[in-house]
Each structure stands twice: as structure tokens, then as C-alpha cells.
Write a protein that binds this DNA or RNA. Structure first.
Lengths: 337, 337
DNA sequence: CTGAAAGCGCTAACAC
DNA sequence: GTGTTAGCGCTTTCAG
């Protein structure tokens, strides 16, 4: 039904080869023919078929994006950063949510392969490289984001979670807090583990033994944050809470609210990530901010460099983004207990 | 490099026809051959090429999604509802952000057409049908969401924005507020216009003349909401603010915070949409909640019905979703002035 | 019950 | 400077 290259060729009175070359600027064509072709294209409203081209070239002009949690505004912003590049290159994006499920991850990777994506950006669900190494082996351009995987010869972009976490803990210690509860995100992904490590390192370097009972495992839903906070509050001596991701932070706040706990007077709170509302909240939230847009942007840059072959083989890059501690109202000097 | 149907056929000692039929279950194949084929497929890790199939069938097993604002969690949830269906049908989703820009919208529609998407779900940037009617004419399955377009013979799913807004205004009137400021979203899209209309209708039916100076135009960024609220506050007699979208609401809250205005004691606030944090905020926010997941889900259902041809021609549906006024702490009885 | 072969729209090697 | 043509991987008619 839609016009094909053949229709254009006939209308312009040239061969389809010439049409192809005009479209792709892939060899010289005389002014005159170029014009005839362009006119024909315009009149027919011709657009090259994605399939014809793809079948021939084995390229899809599409990149795949595998993200764990669509509810998290963080990844939304990451996606924007990536989009910046894909638009410039005329590429499409196919995005799938893994929901932190390795099975889904595997499925979608295979899905993407079937569709011959030209590159893939993944925030992996696990620290293991099983599902990823085949990709690398097959030479599909790949960039890992958000979660660092050790010893994997592949481009990676992630935040310096350990330092971010360290600084948050140090900030709380500096305010006189000795017993700092930690709400973790889902275990087994590096973001969580590194943030946990930063907390541990900081306490230890300040001569404080880490009380494991102050570390409560959550995942990434408000209710889980709520429950984890309640559990934490059973220990009456907690004067500060450090929450490792946005949803857990909201859960903590909800719990505070339900129990009539005054933050920061009764308990200080520090979160990770800086969503729009964090600064508007009452109290405004002290947080460790990441650079989600930049994460996406850098990842996109690495990916397209690989796609366009402007990269030496085996020369992979690892980009660690700085975090920033933003001190607001939700943390205050410990009133002791 | 990856295995083709031909490789499978050779390995299984059958014709490619048979392989195709086994894969697609499109005609009877003896148990024996089926097994041989399936084994060969497994051993080769064969996946049918998306391009080969697409070129032949003119289908992409992909739907397109055009959304205006990726920062808005609302659309994120809508997308989840759609995804539910696309997963079940083994379809992919290609999503693009129009950023409320009709030019981008047009571009992406054309982009989607080139890629032969099997259907399109769009939250249009304007009330005009120009970019959309060609699609309808070409018979590409299409569902409009969020924003109603009159007299367009196409499936549509949207919220009853007028009633939602009406109820919010009525709630504020019931609390004794007489001078209710209105922060609008971007003008010219039906969501904004209908919400505006609901506000107007409510005041009028309660015998109150609408003071146009209480209606301040914003768009969809925090800073715009902030500025609009400041403008509103120049009128000292405003005792309540009704904000028409999430970002404007955040802007209003930010302004309140900056000026030391106590909500709801000094001024009541009602928002539209119910993001995660609205209930956790201090004060928790009275809002008109929509049903974003349902919006996506219904849209997906309509779209796939059309894609699979289970719909009479010219038999379009229009689904209006109820909104719900959720009364929380941010609205209180007017203390008068 | 199975296979041979045409052809979807395009690009690029090969002619001229 | 331009055209002819093979063939990418698949589905589907047609033949048997």
C-alpha cells in the first residue's frame, strides 16, 4: 500500500539503485536526477521500509533499553539522557522493564536480539554476568548502567555509591548521631551493596562498631519501607535513619507520619536520590543526589561510539559518576536519648 | 552470523516450509518432524528474524506509544497498563516523547509509520486532529488517550476531568472557601480545558462569579507552578488553591514553603493526580485521583482488539474513566480573612 | 502430509 | 554517472 523504492524509481524515470543512492547519499548522483528523485519521493510521500533496509543490512537503527523499575523516576531521567543521543542518530528505542527479575531480563535480551537491536543499555538485575557475557561474546554493543559488574569487559556507567553513602553517614555522625538505622534496597545488586559498604566503612573508620540489627532489608516499595522502618523503630535508641532508595525513603516518611514522629526533631532522615519533591517536602529532604541524566547521556555516548565502530576493540571504559550530598532540613543535631 | 531458518531446515533434514509451519503452528506437521525441527531449533539457538518476517508480512509486532511528558509519573503508569497487553501478545513497544511539541509529534508519527508499527497509542499534543486523521485514513489501529478529541472516529480513553475538577471545587466551596485560585496546566489540551470548565461550572452553579484574575496559566514545571502561585498570592484574599497538575502542585507547595505559608491553615490546596508521595507529604495532599493504570490497560485492550481485527469497521469506542476526590490534610475550613 | 519457489523492499557488488 | 541483479530471511501459494 505505501509507496516503495520501485514506485519512486518509475516516477522519477531512474533505476532503484539511483534512488537508493540519493536517499543514502552513498554515491554521486547528478543534480538533475537528484531533483527528479526528491520530487518523486515528496509526491509519493515515500519512506524507505524499515524492514527492507533492516533485512539487507542486518541493522535496525534501534537500541534496546532494559530497566528494572519503571516507577522509579531515576531511570526515567536516565532514559532521557540516552534519548538525547538516539534522537541525534535517528535511532529508535525499545524499552523493556525487567522488574528486577532475572528471568524477564533473559527473556527481553533474547527479544532484543531477535529484533537485531544495534546496541543495548542494561541496568542488570544481578551482579552475575551470565545473561550478559553471551552478548559481549556476540559483539553486540553493550553498556551497563547503574550497577557495576566486576571484571566484565564492557562499558559501564555508574555512581560512586560507596562514597555517596559514606558521606551521608559521615554527615549524620557529625550531627552527633551514634545509632543510625539503615534501610537497604534489594540485596544482591551493586547499588545496594556499595551503599551498604559505604555506611559500614564510615562507621568503622569513625570507630563505631556496626550493629547488624540496625540494618534492615527492604526492597523498593513504599510498604516495604514502611515495614522496615517500623522494625527499626522497635529499637528505641535509633536517632537517625539512612534510607538507601527513594521508595524506602517514602516508606520511612509514611511511618514517621503514622506514628507522629517529628523529623528531624525526633529522628533525622537521609535519603538516596533527589526526586522533584524532595526539596519541597516538609521537612525538605537531605539526600545523596545522583546524576541520572548524565548517567544516561554518558551511556548513550559510549554506546553510539561502539555502534559506529569508533572504538578500538577490547578498549572498554568505566565511568564513575560523582554523587552529591545535599543537606536540607530532614537532618538535625542529635538530641540524644 | 545467527542461525537462519535454512540452517534449521538442513539440520533437521526438512524443508524450510516445514520449519516455518512448525514455528507458527500454521499447518499440520507430523510428530516426528516437529520433534526434529524443535531439536534443531534448540541446538542452533535459532530465533526467527524479525526483519524477514516483517518484510514478508508487513507487520512489526510492535506498537508505538507517543507520550507528552516522561517526567510525569502519570504516563509512566499508563505505559504499564499498556505493557500488560503488549507482553501477552508478544509485542514490543517503541515509545517516544513528544514533549508537548506538535512538530515532534508529527515527526514521530512518521517515524512509527516507517517502522510499520501495528498500532499506535497517542496522547495528542493538541486538540486538532490534523496529524491524526491521516493515520485513521490509512487504517492503522489507533487509540487516543488522556486527551479527548471531539468528532474523531477513533477509540479514545480519558478521564472525566470536568467532574473531577467540579468535585474538587465543590469540596473547597463546602469548606467555606470563596476565592479559589486556579493553577492551570498547558492550555489548548483537553485535560486542562475540561478541568478548567469543571471549576467554572461549579462556581457558577453555586452562584459565584468566576473572577478571571484568579485563574493563572502555567504549564507543567515546578518553577512555573511556583511563579504562578506567587502571582496568585498577590491577591491577598485567596484562601484556597486548586492546582490542575502534579508539577504545578509541587510549585505551589514550594512557594508556600518559601513564604512560610501554612497549608492548610493559611491556604488550602488541592491537586490533580495522586503520585506516591502525595499521601506521605506534610500535609498529605487532597487530590483528584485518576486511574492511569486503567487508562493504559483499557487503551491496550482497544488497540489489540483493533489489531487483531476483532472489531467491526467504524465501530469506535470511547471510554471515560471516573476520577476520585481523595480528601486528605491539605484542605481545611476557610478561616476567612 | 510435505516441498519448491516466488517475492516482500531494500542495498551493494558488479557491470557498462 | 547510472543501471542490472543477487540476495538478505521469511511466509505462503501452489504443486504433489
Amino acid at each position: 500500500m505505501p509507496a516503495t523504492i520501485k514506485d519512486v524509481a518509475e516516477k522519477a524515470g531512474v533505476s532503484i539503485t539511483t534512488v537508493s543512492h540519493v536517499i543514502n547519499k552513498t554515491r554521486f548522483v547528478s543534480e538533475q536526477l537528484q531533483q527528479r528523485v526528491n520530487i518523486a519521493i515528496a509526491e509519493l510521500g515515500y519512506q524507505p521500509s524499515h524492514f527492507g533496509r533492516g533485512l539487507r543490512q542486518g541493522r535496525s537503527y534501534t537500541i534496546g533499553l532494559l530497566l528494572p523499575d519503571p516507577n522509579d523516576g531515576f531511570f526515567q531521567t536516565v532514559a532521557r539522557g540516552i534519548e538525547e543521543h538516539s534522537q541525534n542518530h535517528g535511532f529508535g528505542i525499545t524499552c523493556c522493564n525487567t522488574d528486577e527479575d532475572p528471568i524477564k531480563e533473559r527473556f527481553f535480551i533474547s527479544f532484543m536480539k531477535q529484533r537485531s537491536v544495534d546496541g543495548l543499555i542494561i541496568a542488570p538485575t544481578t551482579m552475575a554476568a551470565e545473561s550478559l557475557s553471551p552478548l559481549i561474546h556476540e559483539g553486540i554493543p553493550l553498556v551497563i548502567i547503574d550497577r557495576y559488574i566486576e571484571d566484565l569487559p564492557v562499558d559501564q556507567v555508574f555512581s560512586d555509591n560507596r562514597t555517596g553513602s559514606y558521606q551521608a553517614a559521615e554527615h549524620l555522625l557529625g550531627l552527633g548521631h551514634k545509632r543510625i538505622g539503615l534501610l537497604t534496597g534489594i540485596r544482591g545488586i551493586t547499588t545496594t551493596e556499595h551503599r551498604l559498604q559505604g555506611y559500614r566503612d564510615c562507621l568503622q573508620e569513625h570507630g563505631i562498631d556496626v550493629d547488624e540489627s540496625l540494618i534492615v532489608e527492604g526492597r523498593s516499595k513504599i510498604e516495604e519501607g514502611y515495614a522496615a522502618t517500623e522494625q527499626l523503630l522497635l529499637r528505641a535508641d535509633v536517632t537517625a535513619v539512612f534510607s538507601i532508595n527513594t521508595m524506602m525513603t517514602l516508606g520511612a516518611l509514611k511511618c514517621f507520619k503514622a506514628r507522629g514522629i517529628d523529623c528531624p526533631h525526633d529522628i533525622s532522615l537521609t535519603g538516596f536520590d533527589d526526586p522533584d519533591w524532595a526539596a519541597v517536602f516538609t521537612p525538605s529532604l537531605t539526600v545523596v543526589a545522583q546524576q541520572p541524566y548524565k548517567m544516561g547521556y554518558e551511556a548513550g555516548e559510549l554506546l553510539f561510539r561502539a555502534i559506529e565502530g569508533q572504538r578500538e576493540e577490547e578498549q572498554v571504559q568505566t565511568i564513575e559518576l560523582k554523587t552529591q550530598l545535599i543537606i536540607r532540613e530532614s537532618t538535625a543535631r542529635s538530641t540524644g536519648h
